[in-house]
Write a protein that binds this DNA or RNA. Structure first.
Lengths: 180, 180
DNA sequence: TTCGGCATGTAACTCGTTACATGATTTT
DNA sequence: AAAATCATGTAACGAGTTACATGCCGAA
């Protein structure tokens, strides 16, 4: 029983009250670097969390008829989240990587197709890296105050950029080695 | 419909005939860097692949009574695998990362607990890196011949080491930034 | 008035893990 | 004789995706 989605939601609700729709949006923005979830998973989870007493909601009516449920975390939910946050779990397996799986078997491909595989992957990681660097620009080169949410955001972004950078370096080396 | 496990199995069977048990072992050795599967997933998949005509098996009896099913890939299975191998798919989402999720919310932790979280993670990645470097030693510093399975193995290993290296660098930077 | 975005949900399905279940063989 | 390893399977559950389904709001 991991219940990671539960804590991914509770963590967001620790900072502000949100609707299910807004939570889903966060997993398309900032959090997409290390987490994502579709609304079809979020709505049932919020229902479950409400039943468990970890969150509660009030219905707001915007404009005229459009209803939305604004969720907030309860005392109980917050304590549960904080307990989870400080627990040290054994690291999970290295995540599955389909590109590496293909590359591992790439001796069954001819040179041209193998090179295409690598080049394509390289360009995707370069785009991802460039997007992350643009995200980083929102800090204007100023490292946020230690202990703030912005600082944590900054650290995670730094890590993502370094990861993509290393991926790009590796793929370039692969190209070189095959190109020789 | 991704069917990645299917191709992860067919790829192995392209090189040699294997039992389900042996396949499961491979996902604890070499392939653990980028793939893994338990026997409880492999046996049903092999059954399915047999029904689909992608593989076939012969029963061998070792010693006295111990039966094992040795699987081999069929012509049809091989063609299917090769088609899959050369297809270029859009890159999947960055995989979920529970550590990064925790770090993202770490402003709710005190300095000492946050530092413990990072240090623990750092030491696990260092161990993983060191294990990978020991794996690399099996090549004795000699880059294998281009186009061989060993060369693909070498490339993937290189990538894993670079990934762990970059992770270690990032975590050290995190420690520094928090330690100041 | 049509299209994109806001807003909430359910259903069917695949994928993956843990636990259950059995039995032979080899090593200590 | 016990423990580890070889060997094969199933069951129950949790996690995640795609598709189905509905309806409001504002802008072009």
């Amino acid at each position: 029983m991991q219940r990671n989605l539960k804590y991914a939601i509770l963590g967001l609700l620790c900072g502000e009250d949100l609707t299910g729709y807004e939570i889903a949006q966060k997993y398309g923005d900032t959090l997409v670097q290390f987490w994502n979830a579709k609304h079809s998973q979020i709505y049932p989870e919020l229902k479950k969390l409400t039943e468990e007493g970890a969150v509660e909601y009030s219905v707001e009516i915007s404009s005229n008829m459009l209803e939305k449920k604004v969720y907030s975390i309860t005392e109980e939910g917050r304590n549960d989240f904080l307990r989870w946050l400080e627990t040290i779990e054994p690291m999970p397996h290295t995540p599955k990587d389909i590109f590496r799986l293909r590359l591992f078997f790439s001796n069954y491909l001819d040179d041209e197709k193998r090179m295409r595989l690598i080049t394509e992957q390289l360009s995707e990681h370069e785009h991802r890296r460039d997007w992350l660097i643009r995200e980083m620009n929102k800090f204007n080169g100023i490292v946020p105050q230690k202990g703030t949410p912005e600082f944590a955001d900054y650290l995670v972004l730094t890590g993502s950029i370094m990861r993509e950078e290393s991926q790009v370096n590796w793929l370039n080396r692969c190209r070189l080695l095959y190109g020789e």
